[in-house]
Amino acid sequence: MKMTEITTPAAPAPAPPAPKGSGTLKHIGYVLRENPVTGLSFLMFAGLLISAAIGPWIVPYDPLATNAAAVLQPPSATHWFGTDNLGRDVFSRVIVATRLDLIISVAAVTLSFIFGSVIGALAGYRGGWFDIIASRCLDTIMAFPLFVLAMGIVAALGNSVANIIYATAIINIPFYARLVRAEVNIRREAGFTLAAKLAGNSDARVLAFHIFPNALPPMMVQVSLNLGWAILNAAGLSFIGLGVRPPTPEWGIMVAEGANYIVSGEWWMALFPGLWLMLAVFTFNLMGDGLRDIVDPRRRT
């Protein structure tokens, strides 16, 4: 895999400041070689996507089927992750839950990406009263401990999965909006912006096609880091009994169900969904760090 990445770029010069198009590929290859963990995180992400896509068809048992004859069995060859208090197969439930957890976090992050971008771009480009009002509103959201605000929103809107998504989206909007606002603001008077305007482009067009794309690379890093946080947040909400209802397989609620059995030693019910949740968050965080290295080598920490 690495060999192809080294050989594909047309420019033979090994020096870092290579010509543009091939330089990007080269740089990605360089980052992957320097930090193989990033490559691993992409592989793990692919694994998560596959289990989300075809999970329900490949799992050995029906995630909802109870079996009174096989209750609370420890992990074995027939039940890889053991069975829970109703005899359901924990492995099947963990894999099937991937889809729901990914949907919640991806949907939430998409919503906050869209709304955050629009609010941030308008505030950064227009300035003035819109900027002041928008910034004040975002500050007020940030004045709440975010998980607590999400709890309050779900309690107010009603206890459903859709509302978990909305709540997670709302608490994430400030991060995107602030990022876009800063990126747009510093380019508002830039030479290429003025040139685009002089060439007769409308404000909306300049903002959408000339300024905003510059904010995309840092946004992608933010998205990846945010996805992990959104999953944690959603799982935390369902852990305290919000959103997802009991028979549905979801990592947070499975950990909550397993927590009741941990003091009597049935560790597998809570451990495996918890591990999967951790793995997913870990994947997104590693990917975010890797993307950051690819996008902006200066921000490495």
């Binding site: 852990f239 950990v255 927590a259 941990i262 030693g265 918890g274 968050v281 870990f282 965080n285």
Partner: peptide, 22 residues
């Protein structure tokens, strides 16, 4: 730092209870 941000708090708590209590 990497592990810390990936750990769900409620899960760490449960693991600690299992190891140190049970």
């Amino acid at each position: 730092v990497t592990a810390g941000v990936s750990l769900p708090t409620f899960f760490t708590g449960i693991v600690l209870v299992y190891v140190f209590y049970y």
